[in-house]
């Protein structure tokens, strides 16, 4: 763990596209995956993160630095998370939820999942398909059958003409 005296320990993280990042150990150990490596003494050199690309890792590290600079105040942490995610496009959110899962960062995982859910909620099927690029592979008959089966889920939702 971090040295008790002197300068804070810095770790070097490597993304799967070979970008290197340096980050304070105290921030990086928000990731349980990284914390375990540190505790096992495997964090001496460069820590390879095979499932995270450089762009996503940069975002995650921004988050690590930002959230760890906030003292134990759940309100402030929450508002930081909201602000941090507010300008992220959906691709970034999808990459980030995968990274958070791999890095075992439950607070980021929770926040990103909640954000994606919030974006999808109360939207028509067509809207969600368009925004997320989901290809409708149902035949018209199949789709009608699924809709009929889930008729109750359409109560109170705008009718969806899929335009």
């Amino acid at each position: 763990m971090a040295a008790e005296t002197g300068t804070p320990t810095t770790l070097t993280l490597k993304s799967n596209d070979d970008e290197l990042f340096s980050v304070a150990e105290s921030a990086a150990i928000l990731s349980v995956t990284i914390r375990n490596m540190v505790e096992d003494g495997c964090a001496g050199g460069v820590i390879p993160l095979d499932n995270v690309d450089g762009k996503t890792l940069a975002s995650v590290i921004t988050y690590m630095n930002g959230i760890s600079a906030i003292p134990a105040d759940e309100e402030k942490k929450k508002s930081y998370r909201d602000k941090f995610l507010s300008d992220k496009d959906f691709e970034t959110l999808a990459d980030m939820v995968l990274a958070a899962n791999y890095l075992n960062m439950s607070c980021l995982m929770d926040a990103v999942s909640a954000k994606i859910a919030q974006v999808m909620e109360k939207k028509s099927v067509g809207w969600v398909r368009r925004k997320f690029g989901i290809e409708n592979d149902y035949t018209p008959e199949e789709e009608a059958a699924v809709k009929e089966e889930h008729k109750w889920t359409f109560e109170g939702v705008e009718t969806d003409d899929d335009n």
């Binding site: 999808m120 099927v125 969600v128 398909r129 989901i134 290809e135 409708n136 592979d137 149902y138 199949e142 789709e143 699924v146 809709k147 089966e149 889930h150 109750w152 889920t153 359409f154 939702v157």
Partner: peptide, 8 residues
């Protein structure tokens, strides 16, 4: 449950 209609 409404997500079931998105795709297979």
């Amino acid at each position: 449950a409404r997500t079931s209609v998105l795709s297979s």
